[in-house]
Nucleic acid binder design. Structure first.
Length: 749
RNA sequence: GCGCGGUUAGCUCAGUUGGUAGAGCAUCCCCUUGACGUGGGGAGGGUCACAGGUUCAAGUCCUGUAUCGCGCACCA
């Protein structure tokens, strides 16, 4: 290369992502191509193709899993955009109620030593909102850095004004259908977070525990076993299996005793839920502190007796028990049993302790008045396009959830998650949606003496007070595919054009939390499915296959990777070698490898441009060759190469349609490096320089070769663009003399 | 307890409807002063977890086993 080179100077140095990416992103944004309303005519006339971004929680920063999600969705969107679809990708963030509030609370407690009730609702919300705003800004910046071609003009937040209207409308509609109800039952109470949580927000931890076998008193002839003796102060029955010969004679008998300072009255009942082979085959029934026992109490009309409060402290018992934490009370009850000579056995056992996902608090089942979504209740679905559920027919939310997938209206990738999904629904119980926290959508219900009002706005008149509780964050994210598109206005242009969405791309770990809830909400409120395809990605783990975590200090920050190796390399490293539904391993070396690849494309371009500029034509003085897409004078071998490339295009187009991005990425890599660079460019050198092996003056052979190389470069830039948008666009801008943008070029066929 | 997934080269993983085992990285050897400090060529390395079965033919289909991981339920 010399100073008279005709090729752009930037190609004389290695590809520099840092100096390129922001500039290119701005180029796309200024052209407006992220917004479907500003796409070229070809796209505007095309079929809509919609993805809503799974809104990241405003709890801090994005991790490498988010980066993988963004890479996959951007590949889908860019591919479809190039194919001429009217593509819309909607960005947004999730307020993540408990997660966000508990994070801010922890910080305040650490820094100022204050608890939320000392601050009050208003002040706490002020702090949480400030934190959420900060997180939001960080997240938006990260999404942009990844190269996401997402429509910022349609950005949404699960707690903004429009989404609030959607949430209230949904609540009111479901309330009127009888699907949302207020009821008293045993729920999962998190004493640490001071709120209820749903069944899905529980994480079970395997621990060792003691199983105690004892009698309530010497006068009661039946022994029972439990790992939680302190709850036995609240027992109101002893349950045995109806066929258990050992206990037949006692069924129906009632006993009184004073147990650890508390007078109890128990009745012996027969219930098939009892497993005769466990322990003594007799079970102490504690309706107030066990969901299973509560169900049993309903069947046998047993009284409810609460002995533990919201702070997991005993409310009854002798002086060494009352007022104590449950763990201390447990020891005290065991001591008492020993002293009374009632303890018969003490064995080690494995136990799964229920803990709250967000706070780590040990769940205490408590009876409480809460709001629920009834999943088994029959109702009339006025309008339905879900196959198998007719408009105006009777159905249940469970049916809607099952039918949407089993009918094939929603396709889950990989398919095996169909069964996981169905299995979960079969076990589903009513969804507890009220939370005793402050950050979130306040329940749109108002009370005045014994009147209840549900609506979008507060009722007219004096003296109404709104329900203190907020909604489960998944209630609002369940509406995400349509609350972002203008619903509840059924005539909103976006709603009409883009719903149902095309693909939901998300992690398999939130299939229950989110995917199932979206299907429930959409079926119930719109009578349709929220999306046609669900693409589930796996977890991104470290090079050794471990989960990334703070304690292991093995987190890979996507922003670091982008800074060091570029967004394109980061994206490829998260795509290649990772199939849907499978966990992926990531190491810095992998990212580095793909940075080399970005540079390889850069250098290929440099080589081809120097050839086109005539710089490789030996001493012959020729004018530069300009790419002519209608050129036909290819040699036999060039025609053969083009045929092979066209075969590759067919192959990878089919694989793109099957969501096999990991395969396509690898094939593009392989073709560019090991076919085009290693074979074709090497083979071109003697032709271009007119070495003795070639007819030394065959200018037409040289020109045809340059045309051929330019053709391949144009094609591979298009193919690689969805995967590596920055470097491909940067090169495109040079070789096309800034006449067009690759982002809206046609996908080759 | 019910269910799902993995087990293929040193490592990470592909392997489409059954038809002679593949890629990247790593290792070793050689080459390379004009596209590429990130280059090229080549080599070694696999009883496809194990045992049966179906088939002309099995990494691929069937049955079972082992092992690792995951989900759900139970958890008195």
């Amino acid at each position: 290369m010399n100073e008279k080179s005709l090729i752009p100077e930037k190609f004389l140095k290695p590809y520099n992502p840092e100096g390129t990416e922001d500039k290119i992103y701005k180029l796309w944004e200024d052209a407006g191509y992220f917004n479907p309303d500003k796409l070229p005519e070809r796209n505007k006339k095309g079929e809509p193709y919609t993805i809503v971004l799974p809104p990241p929680n405003v709890t801090g920063t994005l991790h490498v899993g988010h980066a993988a999600m963004l890479a996959i969705e951007d590949i889908m969107i860019r591919y479809k955009r190039m194919q001429g679809y009217r593509t819309l990708w909607v960005p947004g963030t999730d307020h993540a109620a408990i997660a966000t509030q508990s994070k801010v609370e922890k910080e305040i407690e650490k820094k100022e030593g204050k608890r939320r009730h000392e601050l009050g609702r208003e002040e706490l919300l002020k702090r949480v909102n400030a934190f959420a705003q900060e997180s939001h800004d960080t997240i938006v910046n990260q999404v942009r850095k990844m190269g996401a071609s997402i429509d910022w003009s349609r950005e949404a937040f699960t707690l903004d004004e429009k989404r609030t209207l959607a949430v209230r409308t949904a609540f009111k509609t479901m309330y009127d259908l009888g699907l949302i109800y207020r009821g008293s039952k045993v729920i999962n109470w998190d004493p640490k977070g001071q709120t209820t949580i749903s069944d899905d927000e529980i994480v079970y931890e395997a621990r060792k525990a003691k199983l105690y076998t004892f009698r309530y008193s010497k006068d009661i002839p039946i022994s029972i076993s439990t790992t939680r003796p302190e709850t036995k102060l609240g027992d109101t029955a002893i349950a045995v299996h109806p066929d258990d010969a050992r206990y037949q004679q006692f069924i129906g008998t009632e006993y009184d005793a004073v147990f650890a300072g508390e007078a109890i009255h128990v009745k012996v009942i027969a219930d098939t839920a009892v497993e005769p082979s466990f322990g003594t085959g007799a079970l102490g029934v504690t309706p107030a502190h066990s969901a299973i026992d509560w169900d049993m109490a309903q069947r046998h009309d047993l009284p409810l007796k609460q002995v533990i409060d919201e702070f997991a402290r005993m409310t009854v018992g002798n002086e060494s028990i009352k007022g104590k934490k449950v763990t201390e009370a447990r020891t005290a009850v065991v001591e008492w049993l020993k002293a009374q000579g009632l303890l018969e056995k003490e064995e080690d056992t494995d136990q799964n302790v229920a803990t709250a996902e967000r706070t780590g608090g040990i769940i205490e089942p408590l009876p409480k008045l809460q709001w629920f979504v009834a999943v088994n209740k029959s109702f009339t679905l006025a309008h339905s396009t879900i196959p198998g559920i007719a408009s105006g027919s009777q159905t249940t939310l469970k049916d809607i959830m099952l039918q949407s997938v089993s009918s094939g209206a929603i396709k889950i990738i990989p398919e095996r998650f169909d069964r996981v999904y169905a299995n979960w629904i079969h076990n589903l119980r009513d969804w507890c949606i009220s939370r005793q926290i402050w950050y979130g959508h306040r329940i749109p219900v108002w009370y005045k003496s014994d009147q209840i009002y549900t609506g979008i706005e507060a009722p007219a008149g004096e003296g109404w007070t709104q329900d203190e509780d907020t909604l489960d964050t998944w209630f609002s994210s369940g509406l995400w595919t349509f609350s972002t598109l203008g619903w509840p206005d059924l005539n909103a242009p976006d709603f009409k054009m883009y719903h149902p969405t095309s693909v939901l791309e998300t992690g398999y770990d939130i299939i229950f939390f989110w995917v199932a809830r979206m299907i429930l909400m959409t079926g119930c409120l719109i009578g349709d499915v929220p999306f046609k395809t669900v693409y589930l990605h796996g977890l991104v783990r470290d090079a050794k296959g471990r989960k990334m975590s703070k304690s292991l200090d093995n987190n890979i920050d996507p922003l670091d990777m982008i800074k060091k190796y570029g967004a394109d390399a980061t994206r490829l490293s998260l795509i290649i070698g990772t199939g849907p539904g499978n966990d992926a391993k990531l190491s810095e070396d992998k990212v580095k490898g793909y940075k080399n690849f970005s540079n390889k494309i850069w250098n290929i371009t440099r080589f081809v441009l120097s050839a086109a500029a005539g710089e490789r034509f030996g001493s012959t003085n020729v004018s530069p060759v300009v790419y002519d897409s209608s050129f036909t004078g290819y040699s036999a071998i060039e025609t053969e190469h083009i045929k092979k490339l066209n075969d590759l295009i067919k192959e990878i187009t089919a694989e793109m349609d099957e969501y096999k991005f990991y395969l396509v990425g690898e094939k593009i890599y392989h073709y560019i490096w090991h076919e085009f660079a290693d074979k074709i460019l090497e083979e071109s050198k003697p032709i271009l320089s007119g070495l003795p092996a070639q007819a030394s003056d065959d200018m037409s052979a040289r020109i045809s070769r340059v045309q051929f190389l330019l053709h391949v470069v144009h094609t591979i830039l298009k193919l690689a663009h969805p995967f590596m948008p920055y470097v491909t666009e940067e090169i495109w801008q040079e070789i096309q003399a800034k006449k067009s943008q690759l982002i809206v070029e046609s996908w080759p066929i």
